[in-house]
Design a protein around this nucleic acid. Structure first.
Length: 416
RNA sequence: CGGGGAUUGGCGCAGUUGGCUAGCGCGCCGCGUUUGGGACGCGGAGGUCGGAGGUUCGAGUCCUCUAUCCCCGACCA
């Protein structure tokens, strides 16, 4: 992408009341546009990041044999009445509206009930199970107060996955495989180091559910880390009973702020019983399906990455999610400089390397500042100086060192 | 939903105890000088001050209502 074509621009300032670092940086660098409180549009650079995160999640979910689908945003009230969750007193984040015939419908804040309802049509035999499905969907939640930039919005992108299994054993096997898949996801997203499996409240069927919490100052959760065991406990379930169950001593725990970037949950047969989702087992008996639910807040993860990996000059995207791998700066407009920069842009692009090409008529300082702010992993510079020396200047966003490299070897140096 | 703060060109802000054609920075347009870490000069364009009502000779400044945004709290992926 040539920056002369990109409609967004960077800004030196941001509204004083926009306090969260992720929103400040993402707005300044032109990744998101705030539409209203808790509602953000994703401009081309931001969308690219979102898509890259999705790709990683998609690969890992496919790897545990889940099938991608997409559910609807408009939901009938009836299926939520079956579980008692249509009531605003039970679920306080509902957005509801009406069809022209006055019937009430809901806007998707979750897809648990719709998935179960839909699956009733497809699941009849034990031979059908296990099944796992997932989607990337925009969730709409009428939060009383949204905050922290894109980390807690009224509209946000979520990957939600649901597993249907025959029994507790089959469920547990699948659940464990997802747990491993999630670890891979966070590793690949560059936040694995600081992301902990966290024991949280589990509902009716298990004492615990598991959250994936990333240490982050802007986070809304407080967790207690056990570095030795590499796990954490959410403060909501921190009591003597839990400590005993997990065989942990209170004095070994370290309190940190964190953001919940994922959640895996065992519903047991609770929802299936309420909604009558059954299958026939080998002996011809009707059984309730075991259900698991697995979420990853895609847009929140983007916010967490922006928060955690940025520095005082701007964003620092990991290569796996960066909107481009290379930020190519052309300094000056001498014919030979333009020619070489254009050629390099074409070459890299044709090799499938994504390049943000700063072909704007601006001063060096502004270009360098923008490169830092936008946070692309590699920065290449072509100027009259480099042309003279027959080299290209290469610098990584995370490093202060620049080095001169040859045109021919450039592709090999840019590793994803 | 409780408490606090805010709303003035595209963006960020200032605007005294009400007073004349509402300022500044960034950005934008034009010309020129510059050109490796957000240059400089000159000349321009662009706002009726969130909305409605009121007080007043006169309202961005005061009053009432209302909308929206932000922060803290309660609640949540």
């Amino acid at each position: 992408m040539r920056l002369t074509k990109l409609f967004t621009r960077t800004s030196k300032t941001v509204a004083a009341d926009e306090v969260s670092k992720n929103a400040q940086l993402l707005i300044r660098a032109g990744f998101v546009h705030k539409e209203m409180a808790g509602v953000y549009a994703y401009t081309p650079l931001g969308l690219k990041v979102l898509e890259n995160i999705k790709s990683i999640v998609r690969e890992e979910m496919n790897a545990v044999d889940s099938q991608e689908l997409i559910m609807t945003n408009l939901q009938p009230s009836a299926i939520w009445e079956e579980t008692g969750r249509w009531d605003d007193k039970v679920v306080d984040v509902w957005f509801k509206t009406k069809l022209k015939d006055d019937s009430e419908i809901g806007l998707a804040w979750s897809h648990e009930e719709p998935i179960v309802d839909m699956m009733k049509q497809y699941v009849t035999s034990y031979k059908d199970l296990p099944i796992s499905v997932y989607q990337f969907q925009t969730k709409l939640r009428n939060e009383l107060r949204s905050k922290s930039g894109i980390m807690r919005g009224r509209e946000f992108l979520m990957k939600d996955m649901y597993s249907l299994t025959q029994d507790a054993k089959q469920h547990d096997e699948y659940y464990d495989s997802v747990k491993e898949a999630y670890k891979k996801v966070y590793d690949r997203l560059g936040i694995g180091e600081d992301t902990y499996i966290t024991f949280a409240s589990g509902g009716a069927f298990t004492k615990f559910s598991h959250e994936f919490q990333t240490i982050c100052e802007t986070g809304e959760d407080t967790i207690y880390l056990h570095r030795g065991k590499n796990i954490a406990i959410n403060e909501e379930v921190l009591d003597e009973d839990s400590l005993t169950k997990l065989d942990i001593k209170r004095e070994d725990l370290e309190e940190v702020k964190s953001s919940e970037v994922g959640n895996i949950f065992n519903f047991g047969t609770d929802k299936s019983e309420k909604m009558d989702l059954t299958f026939t087992d080998e002996d011809g008996n009707r059984q309730f399906v075991h259900l698991g639910s697995y979420g990853i807040g895609i847009s929140r993860v983007m916010g967490v990455i922006a928060e955690k990996l940025s520095d005082d000059r701007g964003l620092v995207w990991p290569k796996s999610v960066a909107p481009a791998l290379v930020y190519l700066i052309r300094l000056g407009d001498e014919p030979e400089v333009v020619k070489q920069a254009d050629e390099l842009y074409e070459k890299l692009t044709s090799e499938g390397i994504e390049v943000l090409y700063d072909d704007r008529d601006m001063r060096a300082g502004e270009k360098f500042a923008d490169a830092d702010l936008i946070g692309i992993p590699y920065r290449l510079v072509i100027s009259s100086k480099t042309v003279e020396q027959g080299v290209i200047e290469l610098k990584e966003r995370t490093s202060e060192d620049t080095k001169s490299v040859q045109f021919a070897e450039i592709s090999n140096l840019l590793t994803r």
